[in-house]
Design a protein around this nucleic acid. Structure first.
Lengths: 191, 191, 191, 191
DNA sequence: AATGAATGAGTATTCATTCAT
DNA sequence: CATGAATGAATACTCATTCAT
């Protein structure tokens, strides 16, 4: 009657864990089924292929983050505060989902054209969101008017990625990472 | 009589091309041998395994870049000029070796612990180099004294990666990329 | 309220179509269920297994033909006329049911011993029927008395099969096929 | 130095045996490798796929038979004697290679379009050969001039197939089968 | 040094069948 | 009667690696 978690979700969770622990290629469908405690066939009942499973996980994860950011950003007024939120939520997401971050990197060559396009679209959504915020900041007079918003958005994402736990050795705390990024970026684009 | 290119180099070149075109897992040793126009066994005469081959390519590529940067950096005086060189050489390298950049991303999970450690070491070398420059800049009075150099170095690398051609859609020219990065970063860390 | 066609018949029809379009092994139970617009489980309510379904289709088809031939053959007097009917009905059946003809060929190795025996039995029925006609023809004085009826029956079936549309490239019309067969066979066995 | 049988031949032989014992679908590549006493990979070293292996076996078998017939047929003068040779060699072939005969039947749906076309071509070669003989017989005055040679050739092949051991229950000896066929066919087409 | 035939462990995927609802 | 989610055994095929020549 309760059926706490659907089998599909069990599979996705198991796959997320294994993909991020071991990588896409190093994880077999059998392993996923085993960890999810379902039969191998069940994986194929819910997903057309291993790759599809991967994509569904990626896309849903990134979509969630986007929605969370887009939502929170409306709760504050100034462009500076908005960027603070973007940075924090992103860093928090990387912290919580090292898996996806890692998978994102690994997937570059692995997957189908259609998937790449979807990923690109998602990335563009993020860039648009940030560009918009910067644009608002310029109107507000908070940021320099001579900036091209799109490359700025790219740079911010790059800075954030620099603190993706995968790339990092030393262990800064999240708040500190955000501080460093904002310190440079906001100063860099300030009026 | 001349033997223009050694078979080992032919193999490395073929592997570099194929790895970057298709990714590590999607490239078979047979393909590499074929493209290099040598027998499969020859690959194994020069390299212990496919993974070793991969690593040798990666490491030699990144090493070259490091040496080039380290060398050029000594030819100028100020910290600002040094950072300009770092940014430009990195961006140029990405442009010339999209392959390695892509491979670097993909390799995160793929490979052995020992290899990861080597990659980390290389990355640390880069970070040290940049940290050192920033540190000098602080002493010079060019940069703020309250900065932690290591996170700054990380941030700079992150910003540079943001313009890795793999991640990008729009086609900025190299000079323009460098300008954007330096504009924000130098302003961000300036005294 | 009317329920024009029973689900069982829908399944058999769908299976017949698919088996003959694609062959036994190339057709999955899922496909059959889909084409029949019933659930997969329904197939298993009516048939013990995929093989049973196949057999039921085969046997019922061949049984129908046998009965039709056996019946029509009584409506004429002479052995020659009887053989004409045999040939025509067979050829007509092949034309109408290329599917079954094809399936018959394919099934030789596919299926269980018990099924093969049933098929053999059916074949023997056909051979008996024809042998009997030939035997009558000999008594009538229409056919040579030195003939062994059983091999003659076999030969006739073989000749008929030669015009099975599967084996053929050129498109003779049915009447013409029958004519060719009878021309040779009747002349060959005539007194 | 001797290497009595090449591994490729071992594989083909094993496959031929297993296919004819159990059928195409019922035989796994593993089984073939096992019976041939080679590794599974070796099968794939010599053949692109299971289907290719099947095709190579079929085509080479039928080609051999054709060549044998075409050759022997030139050693005798009259059309009647030529047809006797055709019938005998065919029947002998079926006897020796029940396997191939059976496989031929089963393959109808299994395989690729290109293969079907090749099979058709081979069949046409056989039909042409026989048509030609009949045509010569007509010129010789041995056979009726009102015959269409192509359907006659088809009929003869059909008669021969009727004695394919697969289709048969009782065990006639080869000579007797040939006699039956020729008795009817030659009488049927005689002047 | 170089070759390429041979190996066999490993993997994604299919599909007949079952059974709780 | 009817459904379709769940199962897991079975299979074709790949590919890094070895080694006799």
């Amino acid at each position: 009657m309760e059926e706490e978690t659907s089998k599909k979700e069990l599979v996705m969770q198991a796959a997320l864990e294994l993909f991020s622990e071991q990588g896409y290629h190093e994880t077999s469908v059998s392993e996923i089924a085993q960890r999810a405690e379902v039969a191998k066939g069940t994986v194929y009942w819910y997903f057309e292929s291993k790759e599809q499973l991967f994509q569904e996980i990626m896309l849903s994860g990134l979509d969630n983050l986007y929605n969370r950011i887009a939502e929170q950003v409306t709760t504050v007024g100034g462009a500076v505060e908005k960027l603070e939120i973007v940075v924090e939520l992103f860093l928090d997401f990387f912290e919580q989902n090292q898996e996806l971050a890692r998978m994102y990197n690994e997937s570059t060559n692995t997957v189908s054209q259609r998937f790449k396009e979807q990923m690109h679209l998602i990335r563009e959504n993020y860039l648009d969101l940030i560009s918009q915020i910067i644009s608002n900041g310029i109107e507000e007079g908070s940021f320099r008017a001579d900036l091209k918003t799109e490359p700025m958005a790219q740079i911010l994402l790059g800075m954030i990625s620099a603190f993706n736990p995968i790339c990092q050795s030393d262990e800064l705390i999240l708040a500190s990472k955000a501080e460093h990024i904002l310190e440079i970026f906001l100063r860099g684009i300030a009026e």
